[in-house]
């Protein structure tokens, strides 16, 4: 495992921890899209079905369990916690699941490398992860006074994607048989989706102003 991959995983983990701390600490999930969180949970479930059949390393198994556990916890808090659920911006979080899930499913069925349940679901998870942030970005545009933690959450998530691309470039040159067009294409698309957000994030940081995305 190279340094980019490890740093990417840590950013990913940190983003989730930041979000969990925000939600449980201030008892508020204002500005957070439940749709994005549920889509990520679906991504993890469909991707990590191989958790007991395909052992890679203790690190991988532990991280998979942590991602499944923490994203389940986030969805649980937002949906069922007596206090936290009252702070969810349900009326603003209007993105349609089907708009992201259906194309991902069709593409997975059309392009899966092998037609086994695990492989098709894994391919589905790659497509879905690429677009799962969209409800969150739309919600951010609609939210006035985005708090720092929400901005940092999306920033950390975007950093994770950027670092994974560096990891792939590194592996491309150091591993002979490392050729994964599907994963790379989706990863690049996913990172491009963040570009606009990054631009305004850095702008607000540079000017020492609160983050606000133009509608």
């Amino acid at each position: 495992m190279n340094v980019f991959r490890l740093a990417g995983d840590m950013m990913h983990l940190l983003s989730i921890v930041v979000l969990l701390l925000k939600i449980t600490g201030i008892k508020s999930c204002r500005g957070i899209s439940l749709k994005t969180q549920e889509l990520y949970l679906l991504v993890f479930i469909t991707r990590y079905l191989d958790i007991f059949t395909n052992f890679v390393s203790l690190y991988n198994t532990v991280m998979k369990l942590v991602f499944l556990g923490t994203s389940s916890a986030i969805v649980y808090y937002m949906r069922y916690d007596r206090i936290i659920k009252l702070t969810y911006d349900k009326e603003q979080d209007t993105f349609k699941y089907l708009l992201l899930v259906a194309p991902s499913a069709v593409l997975a069925l059309a392009t899966s490398h092998v037609y086994t349940v695990l492989e098709v679901l894994w391919t589905f998870s790659i497509y879905l992860e690429a677009v799962a942030i969209m409800p969150q970005l739309v919600l951010l545009q609609r939210t006035q006074n985005i708090d720092n933690l929400t901005g940092n959450y999306v920033f950390l998530l975007g950093s994770y994607r950027g670092l994974y691309i560096l990891n792939w470039i590194y592996r491309f040159f150091t591993e002979k048989h490392y050729r994964q067009w599907l994963v790379w294409t989706c990863g690049v698309v996913q990172t491009i989706i963040y570009c606009d957000f990054f631009y305004y994030y850095f702008l607000s940081w540079q000017n020492n102003e609160k983050l606000a995305l133009p509608a």
């Binding site: 991959r5 995983d9 395909n54 998979k64 990891n167 048989h177 050729r179 994964q180 599907l182 994963v183």
Partner: peptide, 10 residues
């Protein structure tokens, strides 16, 4: 392509 290589990533 190699369908299993990326399964070592998260």
């Amino acid at each position: 392509g190699s369908e299993t290589a990326s399964k070592d990533e998260l």
